[in-house]
Amino acid sequence: MAKLIRITTIPLSLEKLLEGQLTFMSNNYEVTAVSAEKKRLEKYGQENKVDTFHVGMTREITPLLDTKALLKLYSFLRKEKPLIVHTHTPKAGIIGMLAAKMAGVPIRLHTVAGMPLMETTGAKRRILNNVEKLTYACATKVYPNSEGLYKIILDEKFTSENKLKVLGKGSSNGIDTNYFNPGQYSEEERAEFKKRLKIPENDTVFIFVGRLVADKGINELVQAFEELEKIHGNISLLLVGPFEQELDPISETSLRLINSCPKIFTVGYQEDVRPYLMVSDVLTFPSYREGFPNVVMQAGAMGLPAIVTNINGCNEIIEEGKNGTVIPVKDRSALQGAMRKMVENKSWRTQLQKNARKKITDNFEREIFWQLLLEEYKLQEKYLGEKKFS
């Protein structure tokens, strides 16, 4: 079997963003997962029955460590001689694509699932722009995981149109709608879990799932909730995810509100988010930038309507007035207004709920996406063969 190398900066991306995908591909390729955090990576490999190779990568700009990682990966690829290297996440993208190009790997693929550079300015933005261009220059094909990202890449002139392709209707991995299925839980289980979290039984529960950082709109969300809670006492906010104060801190005001408000519940990072979605009524996802957010698909598959910002990915999953509502970015007032409407207009919210799951099952089924990606690999192999004999 031909060798396929999949690279992410940290194993969390393999576990969550690409869940199940590498195991599926191992039926057709000899798959190796490359990432940082050696012990966690090895655990992932054992659980998913794929080989692993550890490369110490960071999510920050660290020239010396990055050079060391590049050389280590280059040496590995020279030895392994894979047919395909496929990278995800910005740091793994530049190191992986550059190493693969240097090592003469014939098929070099990079998936774009978000652009942190969109929220930066000045010298750092110029550096990140150049890194993005170099990544795409080294790749033979680039896959934005949403139509919005496709457009941004062209607008920013990072690469040419003939190098870009969106697979299916977007996403990097689709959604397992059998796993994310509200039918798995009874009303009794829902009530019991809500009680365990100490959320009042009759509260309307807004949920956020993701990193609790500024770029995800947490400042706007917490402050909008606090203002709304003064008007409607029977609401709760459930925050599922880790703080990253060292990378992208939320404000001290937001931190104080989270710690002091009895109706804001934080549970940290959770391996399985389904029970938390099960006890919730509305997803609130006021992010500043995304690729194609898994959580919006997960919540939809669990039957939750969503309040999302008007950014790529989000506005491709949520259709205004059908399975949720779309608000402007960084607009606390609009966010509060949308949350208030969800509380006060229950018939509207119920109608959105009815449409939420169908939108996901019709468009983003996981195994269909896996098959699309496998077909794309075979297509790239075909192009390679045609080049050799032309």
Rank of each mutant, 00 (worst) to 15 (best):
M97S: 11
E344H: 07
R366S: 10
V279F: 03
N345M: 12
K263W: 07
M97K: 02
A306H: 03
P262H: 03
M297R: 14
A123K: 15
P305Y: 08
L277V: 08
L149T: 01
L73N: 00
Q336F: 04
T361G: 06
E252W: 09
L22T: 01
A306E: 03
A191P: 04
G233R: 13
H232G: 07
K195L: 13
F225E: 00
K330S: 07
A299C: 02
E37R: 14
I317W: 08
L41S: 10
I318N: 06
K359I: 15
T253W: 09
G174A: 09
D362E: 15
M302L: 10
R196W: 10
W370T: 10
A214S: 14
I235R: 02
I127C: 11
E375V: 07
A36W: 11
R357M: 02
M1F: 13
N129P: 05
E15Q: 15
R256Q: 15
G268V: 00
Y377R: 05
G93A: 03
F53G: 03
V240R: 00
V295Y: 02
D248K: 05
F292A: 05
K169T: 13
F53T: 07
F206C: 00
P106D: 09
E226W: 09
N145H: 08
L277F: 15
E19Q: 14
P11K: 02
N219L: 07
D176H: 06
N363G: 08
S171M: 08
L372K: 14
E201S: 15
K163P: 01
I127M: 14
Q245D: 14
K43P: 03
D203Y: 05
D331W: 06
S75C: 10
S280M: 00
S236A: 11
D176E: 08
I360G: 06
V308W: 05
N312V: 05
R340C: 11
L372P: 03
L70D: 05
E316N: 09
R78C: 09
I7Y: 01
V131K: 06
S160I: 14
A2V: 07
I61G: 06
N181K: 04
E271P: 03
R78T: 10
I307G: 01
V240T: 01
